[in-house]
């Protein structure tokens, strides 16, 4: 049980990271690769948030009285993840726009068939 308590979130985060990287490294379809990228980003974000967690902590907001600063979880990773999510959506948008262009020019999304430039 204590193993679960300690490692459940890290396992989830790194599971997502590994699955995402695996998709990006082995798949040939470009949109599939982008799906892998979005899973990878989610995993990284989950990992960052898990780093900042404190057992039995509260959200870092003084929303009602009785919340003390000592029990608050670390706000820094949350701020970082907000930034990372927005950067992630920017990259995904660019990637999908390129996917539309790729399909228009080559008629396929399979990166193995697209080999105009070699060495």
């Amino acid at each position: 049980m204590s193993f679960l308590q300690n490692y459940a979130y890290y396992t989830g985060a790194f599971g997502l990271i590994l699955i995402g990287l695996f998709i990006m490294m082995t798949k040939r379809n470009y949109i599939k690769i982008i799906i892998g990228l979005s899973i990878l980003e989610t995993g990284v974000n989950l990992f960052l948030i898990a780093v900042g967690y404190i057992s039995g902590g509260t959200a870092p907001i003084f929303s009602r009285s009785g919340i003390t600063a000592e029990k608050m979880v670390d706000p820094v990773p949350q701020a970082l993840v907000l930034t990372a999510i927005v950067i992630g959506v920017a990259v995904l948008g660019m990637a999908l726009a390129l996917a539309i262009r790729l399909h228009k020019h080559f008629g396929t999304l399979n990166l193995l068939e697209i080999r105009e430039q070699r060495w």
Binding site: L21, M24, Y30, I33, L37, L40, V91, M94, A95, L98, A99, R101, L102, H105, F106, L111, I114, E116, Q117
Partner: peptide, 13 residues
């Protein structure tokens, strides 16, 4: 477009 796609995949990783 092809170059940008390759660049983006590696850069994102």
């Amino acid at each position: 477009i092809e170059a940008a796609v390759k660049y983006l995949i590696q850069g994102a990783i």
